[in-house]
Design a protein around this nucleic acid. Structure first.
Lengths: 348, 348
DNA sequence: TCTTCGCCTGAGAGCGCTCTCAGGTCTAAC
DNA sequence: GTTAGACCTGAGAGCGCTCTCAGGCGAAGA
């Protein structure tokens, strides 16, 4: 097989037409027809021609690529490799993008170090993150989806790239897909209450994460309304944190009979910690997670959880970007529903 | 903030130099120096100039982008959103690519339907997949990593794009990162044997998956050498399949005292099925998984598993691509090591 | 002082494609 | 027969950047 890559010039020559006509046919644009179309198609087939996307992008000024920016934090490589959230975003967008002939470019920015690397240094971390965000925004083309991001970074991104949509709540003008995190957490606590639980602890995500903040708010609101005490710890949105927090919580107050855990990964850790302490889930301690990610069904018992429709949100974000520049402050809301499995139990 | 995007022309004008000089400075190329460098840098800073990657790619003929192709199969959206494998590949490559200023483009091809969509139709599935592969290969630039792929598709890809590396074993000339899947499975069975288990069943991955084939081979070899019987089922590399297979296996032969499960996700399902059957893990049935993915530590008890160094493999693949075109048939081998957790037990 | 060499620098030619615009053809209506 | 209108077609000008090449200039050697 020859390594020769035919250009549209070659196609045009082979078909005996001009470059413009060949382009029209290849792009299925109107204004060329009948015999010429056939000749061009034949030439394309014969030469094995494929348009060069890069040239096409440059010439048309609108490259067909959506940038997905995952702002990660946490130990090691960040969440990208372990937290199911990101794959769900990708999986949700992929079919939409592919259907539109758009590419998906993935970027990761570590909130702490700028680059999506393994570094843990804090020296100039914020500036590095900001610089990385600028860099990506400057080259974002069809648009960008901020998979997880802090409001300041989101605002900064929007300044360079209007065609942006955030997957997490940001207070700013950044268009976003917004799940009812507050309501979900609120509903989880109420469900636990309904099951007869009265000492409902919470394991939250990191305090700078917008989703974590909302879920915490929902928990607090519910607990306050129900006249219950507040017991909570920060589990950092990773399993290890969930384990450690559950332990701490149980040590502090052995009477805890339920836990609302702000993500399934942490909930998996919490279930392990509860079990390790000699308690049973759900008989002794009822657990409700959040996300309905793959982690929820891997635990034993499987997790009752609040389903975050990540795939749907991601698909909607992709569609929004494909359509054009979303209006500043645009919001699309998604419900967060209870999915009952075994970890919450059946009540007394 | 103005929406004006300065070009290198603007920078050159502002600095009072030619476009060529501005380009040299921006690219840190030799042949420009002293005062001019400073002037250009000043202009860049003042205008907030960012090189347009698309134009740069077209002009230089070497776009800095690596394409990651995930060939998925299975129900629904495929594995992309649920199987931890893909995120690990991404997470492993990201730091390397970012360090080299390269972008990461993600593609998914469904083995069954071509597009990475949700379809389940088989009509023309293979041809669609092949067409999608061709399309991606034609535009692959810096190179491509085949995250999971069947040998036929890999070969086809290589035909259009020499700069390719596979993450799974392919018998063809495709350069690849090769983990010792056979040895890992073999070692797992031996470990189970060492623990005193004599009825060691296996839950395999889909028979067309190269990794699954190798792991099956390792299992068979070990079982044959140890003079044990073979009991196995296909779990399709997803949790549900693991659950169903474990159930079936246990029904067929209630005396099974150990299971080698070819991926952690399936193992999570298997553990649930074993528990549901009234047996204990590891006391009654010892379980060893494969991968050491996040799923391994979410289960209860946590899984003893064979660690597949996916991140390292992915990073190595990225480095290989960055370096140039790997030789046909190039192989880099990775060990698969036992990670002992609770699901295998301590022996009698 | 003249030549040689080396180092800067800028002009200009593309990379492969899109898209506008002017010209050309053909049909139909006057 | 003439003309307006609709529809094709191709020439050519870029998109923003890279990179080659030749000219210019100063230092060093003859």
């Amino acid at each position: 097989m020859s390594r020769f890559k035919p250009t549209i010039e070659d196609v045009a020559r082979a078909a005996g037409v001009s470059r413009a006509t060949a382009s029209r046919v290849v792009n299925n644009a109107p204004g060329a027809s009948g015999p010429l179309r056939d000749r061009v198609h034949a030439a394309v087939a014969e030469l094995g021609y494929r348009p060069n996307e890069v040239a096409r992008a440059l010439a048309s000024g609108r490259p067909r690529a959506v940038d997905v920016v995952a702002v990660t934090y946490g130990p090691g490589i960040g969440w990208l490799g372990t937290h199911p959230y990101f794959s769900r975003v990708l999986a949700g967008m992929m079919p939409v993008l592919e259907g539109a002939g758009a590419q998906l470019r993935l970027h990761s920015v570590s909130r702490d170090t700028g680059c999506g690397g393994t570094g843990d240094g804090n020296t100039g971390g914020r500036e590095a993150a900001a610089a990385a965000i600028d860099e990506i925004a400057a080259n974002a083309t069809l648009g960008a989806v901020l998979a997880d991001v802090t409001p300041d970074l989101a605002t900064r991104f929007l300044r360079r790239c209007r065609r942006t949509v955030s997957m997490v709540p940001t207070s700013s003008a950044v268009p976003g897909m917004e799940a009812d995190n507050v309501g979900g957490a609120y509903a989880a606590v109420h469900e636990l209450y309904r099951l007869g639980r009265r000492r409902i602890a919470a394991i939250h995500g990191p305090e700078f994460n917008p989703c974590a903040i909302d879920r915490r708010t929902g928990y607090r609101r519910a607990v306050a309304e129900l006249g219950l005490g507040e017991h909570s710890a920060d589990g950092g949105f990773h399993r290890e944190g969930g384990y450690a927090s559950a332990r701490t919580l149980l040590d502090q107050d052995p009477g805890i009979d339920a836990m609302f855990v702000a993500c399934d990964l942490m909930a998996a850790g919490a279930v392990q910690a509860i079990t390790a302490s000699g308690r049973r889930v759900p008989q002794d301690v009822s657990v409700i997670g959040f996300d309905d990610s793959i982690a929820a069904v891997c635990t034993n018992p499987p997790l009752t959880t609040m389903r975050l429709p990540v795939e749907e949100m991601a698909a909607a974000a992709a569609r929004l970007l494909l359509e054009g520049t979303p209006a500043a402050g645009y919001r699309q809301r998604f419900p967060v529903d209870l999915v009952v499995r075994a970890s919450s139990g059946h009540g007394q």
